[in-house]
């Protein structure tokens, strides 16, 4: 890979300052960015590690729900969110593999917004709020298509706040090689309605399946989804599955998530 200067600030303010340099890029757990740089598909001149910033780490239950620091590794979320938000903890515990989970972070995953990543489904499905150094962004506004987000130049995610639903579940069907989501569904039942978020399936990245939300808000049971059909238009087609196959998975996994919700 191309060479760069490595800096590791210990505060958000210092990180933002370091990122204002020409060619600077933020590095969180690096589980995606490092391989990308090895392929020379990214070539920052300054790499700003966010892993040394204590104020960006941790899982904490507050009035608005569960707040997770952006630099918190998946393994920590899997453990510490378990008693507050088991579906989210399960999602975090199923990303990558244990070594990846010890490094990869929620902030890094959301900033990258891979169309097959798990966290976007959890965040959108929960209606969470993405907190940055500048503002708070509702999940519905944050995800703007494959690898595209509402983040602006120099803006870094500092944390995410999740409202805690009555019931929720995440069901992931692995792409057999990468073990990213071939398709995965996050279902969350709140007092005022149900949210269903799908990752891995669409060319537009994570999306909400509004018909299912409507049906499930009326009757929260797998059978409520049975009569719905999912269009394969806009679904990803690749070696691992056709658009029609992914459309099928959306429905099957939604039913399974509803059945598994706790």
């Amino acid at each position: 890979m191309h060479n760069f200067d490595f800096v590791k600030p210990s505060s958000i303010a210092d990180a933002v300052k370091a990122l204002s340099k020409e060619g600077a890029q933020a590095l969180s757990g690096g589980q995606t960015l490092t391989p990308t740089m090895k392929q020379r598909l990214a070539a920052p001149t300054v790499l700003v590690s966010l892993t040394g910033i204590d104020e960006m780490k941790g899982v904490c239950l507050g009035e608005d729900g569960l707040s997770i620091g952006a630099a918190t590794p998946h393994a920590v979320v899997a453990k510490e969110a378990a008693k507050h938000y088991p579906a989210l903890a399960m999602l975090a515990g199923g990303i990558g593999d244990p070594a990846v989970r010890n490094r990869g972070t929620i902030g890094g995953s959301l900033a990258n917004n891979d169309p097959a990543a798990c966290y976007p489904a959890g965040v959108l499905g929960s209606g969470a709020t993405v907190v940055t150094n500048r503002r708070k962004i509702a999940a519905d506004d944050y995800f703007q298509g494959m690898f595209t987000t509402a983040l602006e130049e120099g803006e870094i995610i500092t944390g995410v706040t999740f409202p805690i639903p009555e019931k929720a579940a995440y069901v992931k069907f692995n792409q057999p090689a990468s073990r990213f989501a071939l398709t995965a569904v996050f279902v969350a039942k709140f007092k005022d309605g149900v949210r269903v978020a799908v990752t891995g399936a669409s060319n537009d990245g994570v999306f909400r399946w509004s018909e299912a939300e409507k049906a499930l808000s009326g009757h929260f049971a797998a059978s409520a989804v049975e009569g719905l059909s999912v269009s394969s238009d806009g679904m990803i087609g690749d070696l691992h599955g056709t658009p029609a196959y992914r459309a099928n998975l959306v429905k099957v996994l939604t039913k399974r998530a509803v059945a598994a919700a706790q």
């Binding site: 490595f6 590791k8 590095l27 690096g30 589980q31 490092t34 391989p35 090895k38 392929q39 790499l47 590690s49 892993t51 393994a75 990558g96 593999d97 244990p98 070594a99 990846v100 010890n102 490094r103 990468s178």
Partner: peptide, 26 residues
Amino acid sequence: DTSQCGACVVHLDGKAVKSCTMFAAD
């Protein structure tokens, strides 16, 4: 090169990590 085979796993402060997917400076 893609952080998947795990031949490079070491313990970093007691946790398993893939040493090919982390910079020495970090």
